[in-house]
Amino acid sequence: MSRLTDANVVIAKEIIARYPRAKSALIPLLHLSQEQNGYITREAMVQLGELVGVTSAEVYGTATFYEMFRFEPVGKYLINMCGTMSCALMGAGELMHHAEHKLGVKAGGTTDDGMFTLAHAECQAACTEAPTLQVNYRYRFRVTPADFDSLIDDLRAGKLADEIPQHGVLAKVRQRIPADKGVGAVAPEDVTEGPAWLDGKPAL
């Protein structure tokens, strides 16, 4: 179950083929795995290692460096509360306090019903709209405690299911390079000369 499905293996191979070195695809593939399972499992790391030709220890080494990868299940909705300077200046501390109270868990915890994981986050690049939060990496701006409450109620009632997918899903659109239009990966060992358009004349 936690290995990639056949359909996802096809996508994984498509992604790997875009890079001159297969290992470059590792982070996108870890995302793919997290999208499928909600978190990264041991079996998944073994399989990804096989796909890109490195040991599972190397996969683990890369995966654990990055904050977005989770190694145990999280709630259906991961709520990341920004607490860096601009948000802090605009009341992020109080909002976090309120959120902990509302959900009945401390930051880092998951509610008993498995719906919400509350987490601290660092700057989310929305500083003028402070305080901000992200639910499964979808933004909410200028959040007041009352806004937070209605957000939780809406999520519980399933009203935002169209906008906010399950944890692990990032972009809902994938890049697809059509076979007849793509150049393909340009590997160092395959190229000895400068590109064709650099001959001193216009390309058109």
Partner: peptide, 8 residues
């Protein structure tokens, strides 16, 4: 990574 909309 956190910018899901930008990626989309």
């Amino acid at each position: 990574g956190e910018m899901a909309l930008a990626q989309e």
